[in-house]
Simulated assay, not measured.
Amino acid sequence: MSAGAYEAALTRRSRSKVSPETPDHDELVRLVSAAGRVADHSGLEPWRLIELRGTDRHRLGEALAEAEGKRSPSTKPLRAELLIAIVFAPKKSHKVPEWEQEAVASGVAHVLSLLLDEAGWGVLWRTGELTRTEPVHRMHGLAPQEKLLGWLYVGGVLPRDKPERPRTIDGARFITGLPTA
């Protein structure tokens, strides 16, 4: 077995705090080109990404505040210099149900987060109830059928004060056979 994908999955970490450095647009395009190779029944490509930098993050903070009924803009989008909005963009298909298409969009986001992590960037996938609100939908310019799945917050990796303890998963706990008839 090749160690690349296995090691990337084992060593991936969510980084809630990142430094201001970010991948440039060209590096992002290269990584998205690889992430878009996820399993995609009928090759529908039911996803797209929105790159948010600079004042885009302030606009998102205003939309989040509007969605929450608050006066002051949210500062959450300012926690990273680059946010990548993950958009589920379903396509009409008699063959591929919508839930399967949404799984493809989620797969692209997850693979992209692995690739960014492997390239040395800090990444955190943020979600929440506000992703499906009208002000946030409008701010992103989403079409009526599109849904926001969250944002990848991306930046440089900060040094840790404490050594990281990898989270371990007991794979055997999650694999079962069919129940007996």
Results as ranks from 00 to 15, higher is better:
2 S>G: 15
4 G>S: 15
6 Y>E: 15
6 Y>R: 15
7 E>Y: 07
8 A>Q: 09
14 S>A: 10
16 S>G: 14
16 S>P: 11
18 V>H: 12
19 S>C: 09
20 P>F: 15
21 E>D: 14
26 D>K: 14
27 E>V: 12
28 L>H: 06
34 A>K: 13
39 A>K: 11
40 D>W: 00
48 R>M: 02
48 R>P: 00
50 I>K: 13
53 R>P: 00
57 R>C: 03
57 R>S: 03
59 R>S: 08
62 E>I: 02
64 L>Y: 13
65 A>K: 14
66 E>G: 11
67 A>H: 12
68 E>I: 07
74 S>F: 06
75 T>S: 14
75 T>H: 10
75 T>K: 13
77 P>F: 15
77 P>K: 15
77 P>M: 12
77 P>E: 10
79 R>I: 03
81 E>W: 14
83 L>K: 06
83 L>S: 08
85 A>Q: 10
87 V>D: 06
90 P>G: 12
91 K>C: 05
94 H>W: 11
95 K>W: 01
96 V>D: 10
97 P>K: 10
101 Q>L: 09
104 V>K: 11
104 V>P: 01
105 A>D: 04
107 G>D: 02
115 L>V: 02
117 D>A: 05
118 E>S: 05
118 E>W: 01
120 G>S: 04
121 W>E: 00
122 G>N: 01
122 G>R: 02
123 V>M: 02
124 L>Y: 12
124 L>N: 05
124 L>M: 11
125 W>Q: 00
126 R>V: 08
127 T>A: 01
131 T>Y: 04
132 R>K: 13
133 T>G: 08
136 V>R: 05
139 M>P: 02
139 M>N: 08
140 H>L: 13
141 G>S: 06
142 L>E: 04
143 A>Q: 10
145 Q>M: 08
145 Q>S: 12
146 E>P: 01
148 L>V: 11
153 Y>N: 00
155 G>D: 09
157 V>W: 07
158 L>D: 01
160 R>H: 09
168 T>N: 07
168 T>V: 03
169 I>G: 03
171 G>L: 07
172 A>R: 05
181 A>L: 12
